[in-house]
């Protein structure tokens, strides 16, 4: 054995091959950065084209949205309104139900009950959104029509909000339960030691201690509701309008994008470009909420270190 055997050149180990393999793996990881970059560039490019024809102010403040048929109007607010209605409506279902489910699973349920309910909620989360859309159309809307004394159309915001609400329950419950699970047991024991009831421990100790994790789950679930597409398209319709009635059709940003997607809008037309302006609006809103959720959670992690 001579000393030269240890050098890269003489050892018979192909350094170039090793570097090439490393490079390939790096490229795979870097693809995610390129994906983000691609999304931003594609949305920006399309939006820039769009705003050559449409004033930025008119887009953000206009109250009429009709880019495909005359008279053409490009005010995005009705779409944002539609998205807001669905988001707020679904939050009114998913937040209380999801939080209570999380409290039950984390603080009350026996292990066997827990290990039954959790997988079922996972299945609920795994159902394709198109199926939820069908469910709204074939079950929820007819039930609303049957039991409520209003004039409810085939497409209505309420049905959309209800299915999206059901859809995001698992998200709220599982992330909130994780947060509650992370609360150290000594905190609970301290409260029990002072003579607190289980209810007082759950609501007075565990909830406040895990509040930031729970809030993060809300923000993430709402971001999901904003980006939700197929269920709201099928359930809530394609009528961009300001309405405070939950029983009228509306149109969300995502539903508009589907509308353009299935129509024969020619590439390069303002209608086509509007896709990217609306997509950009959607992307900015969800990105902002996701970052907000990450920020809340990173703060929360520090609390129990």
């Amino acid at each position: 054995m001579t000393a030269a055997d240890l050098t890269r050149d003489a050892s018979g180990i192909d350094g170039a091959k090793q570097r090439a393999i490393r490079g390939i793996f790096f490229a795979c990881a870097f693809l995610s950065v390129l994906t983000t970059l691609g999304i931003v560039v594609v949305l920006l490019e399309g939006s820039v084209d769009f705003f050559r024809d449409v004033s930025f102010v008119a887009f953000l403040t206009g109250t009429e949205w009709s880019p495909l048929i005359e008279p053409r109007e490009y005010g995005v607010l009705p779409l944002v309104w539609g998205t807001l209605v669905i988001t707020v409506g679904s939050a009114m279902i998913a937040i209380p139900v999801g939080t209570a489910t999380a409290i039950y699973l984390s603080e009350y349920a026996e292990p066997r009950v827990r290990s039954t309910i959790k997988p079922i909620l996972e299945i609920l989360a795994g159902i394709p959104t198109i199926v939820y859309g069908f469910f709204a159309l074939s079950f929820i809307t007819p039930q609303l029509q049957r039991f409520l004394p209003y004039d409810i159309g085939t497409f209505n915001a309420a049905a959309g909000a209800i299915v999206v609400g059901i859809m995001i329950i698992p998200m709220v419950s599982s992330l909130s339960e994780d947060a509650m699970h992370a609360v150290p047991d000594d905190l609970r024991e301290a409260a029990y030691g002072l003579g607190a009831t289980r209810f007082e421990v759950s609501t007075g100790v565990v909830l406040p201690a895990s509040l930031s994790g729970i809030l993060a789950s809300y923000v993430l679930a709402l971001s999901r509701a904003i980006g939700e597409t197929m269920a709201v398209t099928l359930a809530a319709g394609m009528a961009p309008q300001f309405t405070t009635s939950p029983f009228e059709p509306i149109q969300t940003m995502t539903a508009y994008m589907v509308q353009v997607g299935i129509s024969d809008v020619s590439i390069g037309s303002v209608g086509y470009q509007s896709l990217f302006a609306v997509g950009m609006t959607l992307f900015v809103m969800t990105l902002g909420m996701n970052l907000c959720s990450l920020w809340i959670r990173s703060r929360y992690r520090e609390e129990y270190r």
Binding site: I39, V42, L43, G46, L220, S223, R224, I226, G227, E228, T229, T254, M257, V258, G261, L275, F276, G279, L282, F283, T286, L287, N290
Partner: peptide, 9 residues
């Protein structure tokens, strides 16, 4: 967390 429809674009 990016909506799937944005991936579509």
């Amino acid at each position: 967390g990016v909506p799937s429809i944005v991936y579509g674009l």
